[in-house]
Design a protein around this nucleic acid. Structure first.
Length: 503
RNA sequence: GCUCUGUUCGUAUAAUGGUUUAGUACACCUCACUUUCUAUGAGGAAAUAGGAGUUCGAUUCUCCUACAGAGUACCA
């Protein structure tokens, strides 16, 4: 690559950005950063009716949380602003006019109602209404009307749209970086509206104009745009502009069943489909987010990168830096990928385990502070003991809470399994043994208790399991002697005695 | 319906026109280790959608069928 690429992520602020959108942003980011290029955020808000307040902020916060910030965009003005299409409104009309002058577009006066009627009638006959070369001469537009009629209509303020005049009898060879060459006949295309009667451009026009004006070199977007590619390429040609390179990313599909991953799948499957929590401003409905569910952004990014891409090696755990180094558009898959929440959890676990212990200690400290628990325990040691079975930060507390708070109730199943007739007297005897131990290191306690059990000629489980119930409340947790050593001799004995009393 | 795109173990994917008994990861099963729960380690089961063609040879190239997805708005 000779010149540094400029890429853009161009969401529409109609709701929270879902993980498919984040994946698109990520691939744009990885690609451009690999080549020291620029990542632009452009807000495509040409449809005022669908604007949702907060959606734009959400995109920005989400990208920042994921550590894939944009270089230019709203609030980060570069030389190509403004970056909201609603603020660029004045730019588009001239290009629509240019297309009309060149004969590549025309005015159309058909109302929505008329078009709906056409569609309905065709549907009843089992056909589809297509507005293009085969009927455009007969419809209510500047191709069928006289000069006089046209200027009269326009001057009298009759609403009109501007449609693209799609060329006839041409075979288009389109190049997509991930799919190769795509062939399509222009005759099957329709004359898409470029400019709406409300004075706003449609997505197609605005998108092409902005990509050109912002000097975007590579368009990387979701597969749902593939059907629009011929129109876009034709527009570049009609405007006499150089065409950027196009890559269409495979869709992210539901984990089970058919179709694109949607909001409902998350609710049904109990996993987030959004990077951050989103509260709908109208319905107050809450959609869960990866951030709030305790996922590390590194894990989410890593998981997303592997949805439709792979490095071709057996390495699966990647940092963002490594992803940038390894990313290659040529290795993007063509087929849609089913989303796998289990694998996402695995990525989280891997990244959680790779996180430096000191950060986990900080997190645990915060949790204790929030719970108003003051403790003199060695948190480093505790983290080392429980970390391997933790996946989320909150697990740090769940797995260690019994150290800070003595169990108040005991798991019934565990009691049934481990607490027998003679257990109480054995536990009494154990407290006497423990009382005499001066060096309460886990190693020393372990040696003494184990040899005592051996001398009694009973099974280890007979002592260890009730002891675990006494200290933890259930048959879970790390090495018992480590636990005893941490909570101290006095606390250990206290807990055993209290358990004997309660059961 | 029409147009476009796609199809390797349950899932995500690797590989190559022959060296493949098609590799890896998640999930699943077994064993080991923890006399607990995890985690971990070892092992197991599991796939080239179907049919033609090109070829000495195809999972890899071509075509057809099936299935799937997307698009088909004065939405993006």
């Amino acid at each position: 690559m000779t010149n540094k690429p400029r890429v853009r992520f161009a969401p529409s602020p109609t709701g929270p950005l879902h993980i498919g959108g984040v994946r698109t942003a990520l691939f744009n980011y990885l690609f451009t950063k690999k080549h020291q290029g620029t990542f632009v955020l452009r807000i495509e808000d040409t449809d005022q009716n669908r604007y949702v307040p907060g959606a734009e902020d959400y995109v920005i916060v989400a990208l920042n949380w994921c550590n894939i910030p944009f270089d230019e965009g709203p609030g980060k003005e570069g030389n190509y602003g403004p970056y909201r299409q609603s603020e660029r409104k004045h730019l588009y009309k001239q290009y629509a006019d240019q297309l009309i002058q060149n004969g590549h577009a025309y005015y159309a006066f058909d109302t929505s109602e008329e078009l709906d009627l056409h569609r309905k009638q065709h549907e009843e006959n089992g056909k589809t209404f297509v507005y293009n070369w085969h009927n455009r001469e007969k419809l209510n537009n500047s191709l069928s009307l006289s000069e006089n009629e046209i200027s009269q209509k326009i001057n009298s303020g009759e609403p009109y749209v501007i449609r693209f005049k799609c060329p006839v009898d041409e075979t288009l060879q389109l190049i997509d970086e991930v799919r190769g060459t795509i062939t399509i006949e222009t005759n099957v295309l329709d004359d898409k509206i470029l400019f709406k009667s409300d004075g706003m451009p449609t997505y197609h026009l605005a998108n092409i104009v902005d990509d050109h004006l912002m000097e975007i070199t590579h368009v990387i977007r979701g597969e749902e745009w593939l059907p629009s590619l011929p129109l876009h390429v034709l527009l570049y040609r009609s405007l006499g502009w150089e065409t950027p390179s196009f890559s269409h990313l495979p869709l992210i599909l539901k984990p089970t069943g058919k179709g694109k991953l949607g909001k409902r799948d998350g609710i049904k499957g109990g996993f987030p489909v959004f990077p951050l929590q989103w509260i709908d401003p109208k319905t107050k409905e809450i959609a869960s987010g990866y951030r709030e569910d305790g996922y590390l952004p590194e894990a989410v990014i890593n998981m997303l990168a592997f949805l439709g891409w792979n490095p071709g090696t057996e390495q699966e755990i990647f940092s963002l830096t490594e992803l940038i180094q390894s990313f290659d558009l040529g290795r993007v898959n063509k087929a849609g990928a089913k989303f796998d929440p289990e694998k996402t959890k695995w990525f989280q676990q891997q990244h959680f385990q790779n996180t430096d212990d000191s950060l986990h200690v900080e997190q645990l400290k915060n949790i204790l502070q929030n719970k108003n628990i003051s403790s003199s325990f060695d948190l480093n040691k505790i983290v080392g003991l429980i970390k391997e079975r933790a996946v989320f930060t909150n697990d740090l507390w769940d797995l260690s809470s019994f150290l800070f708070i003595a169990p108040s109730e005991y798991d019934e199943k565990a009691i049934k399994k481990a607490w027998k007739e003679d257990t109480a007297s054995l536990m009494h005897e154990l407290t006497r043994i423990l009382t005499d131990i001066d060096d309460f290191s886990s190693e020393n306690v372990s040696n003494i208790v184990k040899s005592w059990i051996k001398s009694k000629e009973i099974g280890f489980g007979k002592i260890m399991m009730p002891l675990r119930i006494s200290l933890v409340g259930s048959l879970q947790g790390p090495d018992l002697f480590e636990i005893m050593s941490i909570i101290s001799k006095e606390e250990t004995i206290k807990r055993i005695e209290s358990t004997i009393e309660k059961i």
